[in-house]
Design a protein around this nucleic acid. Structure first.
Lengths: 341, 341
DNA sequence: CTGAAAGCGCTTACAG
DNA sequence: CTGAAAGCGCTTACAG
C-alpha cells in the first residue's frame, strides 16, 4: 500500500509524529496554529489515517457485524438498509453478511466478524438455535438477536423482535371481523420461534371464537415464493370450504397468489388473503396484499440503540427482550364475507 | 476486548510467541509435533487471531468494498448476494455500502473504505460521474466500476457492465417482430450512461425500420416504481395510439403496471410492456413481465475475477471494459399485434 | 505546547 | 526447529 503515514506528514511539517497524531485525533494540548498547519498538509498530500492501526490501539473498530439470512429477501434488505443508515448516523459502519440460514456458514461468519474485532454483532434470524450455540455467540461480544429466541435462552441474550404473538392475534381478529370462520393458516414453520408465537397468537383468538384454522405447514427451513406456491397448489387443486387464508410471510403469500392465478381462484373474490411482513412485495401493483406490518424501521432503531448501550456498558449482564408492536396495513386482498356463502 | 493474544498461548504452551505465530500461519520450519500441540491449545482456549494486527503487517485485509445505490433495489440486492457469495469462495469478504446515489455520501464511503485498507473497491452505479471524480476514485486502489463510464474515462478505469447498446437493440427488435410500430420508450434517464446507450441501441433498430419511439424521460436521478407510475399516469389519462411500451428498468415497469391498473389499461391487451433487468419483480405472480436479463451472476463473477487479477497485478495500468451480453426473457406482458388495430 | 518511548497484536528476516 | 528483535501505523502516558 503506497499510503502515506503519519511519519511522512511529520517529516513534511517538521514536527514529531506524536504531534501529527495529536493534530489528527483532536487531542488537547496542541496549539491551534500547528494543528491547522498539519491538517492542511494532510489534506494537500491526501493523507488518510490507517483505521486498522487505530483500532488496534483503541480496541474499537466502530464496525458492527450484521448477519441476515439473505439480502435478496425484501424483509432483510429493507431492515439492513434501515440499520446501516441509522448506524452510520451514530458513527458506526456495518459489515453485512448473508447466512443463507445455514448453521455452518453462520459459524464461519461469526468467527470472521470476531477476528475482525467488530464492536458488536446483530443477528437477524428466524431459525431456532440451540441454547448452546446462542450462548457461544453471545458470550464473547455485545450481541443482539433480531428475532425470537427459545424461552430458555432469555437469561443469556438480548433480543428484539416484532411481537409475533400479538401479530398473530391481529391477523386472526381482522379475518374474524370480516366474517370468516373457515380459515387456512398457510406457511407455518415449526422450526422458527417467531412462527410458533405467531401461530399461538392466531390460535388464541380463534379458540376464543370456538374455531380452529387448517394449518398448512412449511416443512423447509425458510419461507419463499416457491414454497408458498407448492403448498397452495395442493390445496387449490381440489375444492375447499375455507374463505380466507393467513399467510405467515409476504413471500409465502406471493406463492399463494401465483397458485391462485393458475387455478383461477379469485383473490379476494373466492378467497381472502392476509399476509405478514409488509415488504415492498405486498404493495406492488396487481398484488396489493393486506398484511401485518413488522415495522422494520422501529426494529432497526431499537436494535442499534440497544447495541450502543451494550457497547457503552460492556459488563452489564442484564438481558432485555424488546417487542415491537405490529400494525395492520389494509389493501385489497381481503373482503367481507357476505351472508349466503 | 478480553481477547486472548498470541502471547497468552505462548505462555501456556511454554514456547516463544514467534513459534505460536508460525504454528498458526502455517509457515514452514516448525515441527509438526509442536504445531499440533499449539493448535490444540488455541482451539481449547478459543484463541482467535486479530485480523487487524495481521492486516497491518501483511498490508492485505482480504476485504473488498462494494458500493451500491440501495440494497432494497432488487437488482442490487441480487447482484450483491452473487458478489458476496463468489468473493467468499475466493477468500474475500465484502463490506457493503449504500450510496443512495448521492455524491457526497459516495465520497464518504470511499474514504471510509480506503482508511480501512480494503484490497479493492467495486462500485455499482448507473449515475454519470465526472472524469475527475472517477479518476480520484480509481487512482488509489484496485477499482472497478460496475456500470458504464463516459467515454473519456475509458483510459483511466476498469468497467464491467451489461452491453446496454445491445440490450436496447434486443428490446426494439423484439417489439418490432411482434408487429408494433408505435412505441413508448419510458423511463429514460439522461443522467446515466447506461441509459444513454440503451436508448441509442433501441433507436438504431427503430431508425432502420423508419420509426421513432416516443420518449418519456425520467427527470430524477434514480429509477423507481413511483417514478414509473408518475410518468405513465400522465400518458394513460389521455388516449394514445402506441401499442407497446419499453420500460428502461423493471421498477419503472412496475410503476407502469400500477398506472395501467388505475386507468383500466390491459397489459398486454391494450399495451404490450417490455422491461429491462429481470429482477425478482418481473417474475412475480400477477406481474409476469417480459424483460431483458442483465445476467447478474455473469456480471458478479466477471467483476470479482477481474478484481482478483487487479489485486495480483497492482502495477498494471491497462484498463479493460467488459461487456456482458444481455438476453431476452419472455413472459406474459407482450403480445403480437394482430392486423386490424 | 512538543518530543521520546512504550505498546496494540501480530509477522518475518536474522541468528543460533 | 526455535527464539530475540525489529517493525506494521498508530495512540498515549510521561517528561520537559
Amino acid at each position: 500500500m503506497g499510503n502515506l503515514t503519519i511519519k511522512d506528514i511529520a517529516k513534511v511539517a517538521g514536527v514529531s509524529y506524536s504531534t501529527v497524531s495529536r493534530a489528527l485525533s483532536g487531542a488537547p494540548g496542541i496549539s491551534s496554529a500547528t494543528r491547522e498547519r498539519i491538517l492542511k498538509i494532510c489534506d494537500e498530500k491526501g493523507y488518510r489515517a490507517n483505521a486498522l492501526a487505530r483500532s488496534l490501539i483503541n480496541k474499537k473498530t466502530n464496525v458492527l457485524g450484521l448477519i441476515v439470512p439473505e439480502v435478496t429477501n425484501p424483509f432483510y434488505s429493507e431492515l439492513s438498509l434501515e440499520i446501516e443508515t441509522y448506524a452510520r448516523e451514530l458513527g458506526y459502519n456495518i459489515m453485512l453478511c448473508n447466512s443463507l440460514n445455514d448453521h455452518e456458514r453462520t459459524d464461519e461468519l461469526f468467527n470472521f466478524l470476531l477476528s475482525h474485532r467488530v464492536d458488536g454483532i446483530l443477528h437477524a434470524s428466524s431459525r431456532i438455535y440451540s441454547a448452546d450455540m446462542l450462548k457461544n455467540y453471545s458470550s464473547s461480544i455485545p450481541f443482539i438477536l433480531i428475532g425470537t429466541a427459545p424461552a430458555e435462552c432469555n437469561s443469556i441474550l438480548n433480543t428484539i423482535s416484532t411481537d409475533n404473538y400479538e401479530g398473530g392475534r391481529i391477523a386472526a381478529k381482522y379475518l374474524l371481523s370480516l366474517g370468516h370462520r373457515d380459515i387456512f393458516y398457510m406457511g407455518y414453520r415449526k422450526g422458527s420461534t417467531s412462527h410458533q408465537l405467531r401461530l399461538l397468537g392466531f390460535n388464541s383468538v380463534m379458540e376464543n371464537a370456538g374455531l380452529k384454522p387448517v394449518i398448512l405447514e412449511n416443512p423447509s427451513n425458510g419461507s419463499s415464493i416457491s414454497r408458498g406456491y407448492d403448498l397452495c397448489r395442493k390445496i387449490f387443486s381440489k375444492p375447499f370450504r375455507q374463505t380466507a387464508m393467513f399467510a405467515a410471510t409476504d413471500s409465502m403469500a406471493l406463492g399463494a397468489l401465483q397458485a391462485a392465478e393458475e387455478y383461477h381462484i379469485s383473490i379476494p373474490g373466492d378467497l381472502s388473503l392476509l399476509s405478514y411482513d409488509n415488504t415492498i412485495f405486498s404493495s406492488l401493483p396487481g398484488i396489493s396484499l393486506s398484511t401485518v406490518d413488522q415495522r422494520k424501521q422501529a426494529l432497526a432503531h431499537a436494535a442499534v440503540d440497544l447495541m450502543m448501550h451494550l457497547i457503552e456498558h460492556p459488563y452489564n449482564d442484564q438481558h432485555t427482550h424488546q417487542l415491537i408492536s405490529p400494525s395492520l396495513v389494509l389493501r385489497n386482498s381481503c373482503r367481507e364475507l357476505t351472508s349466503g356463502t
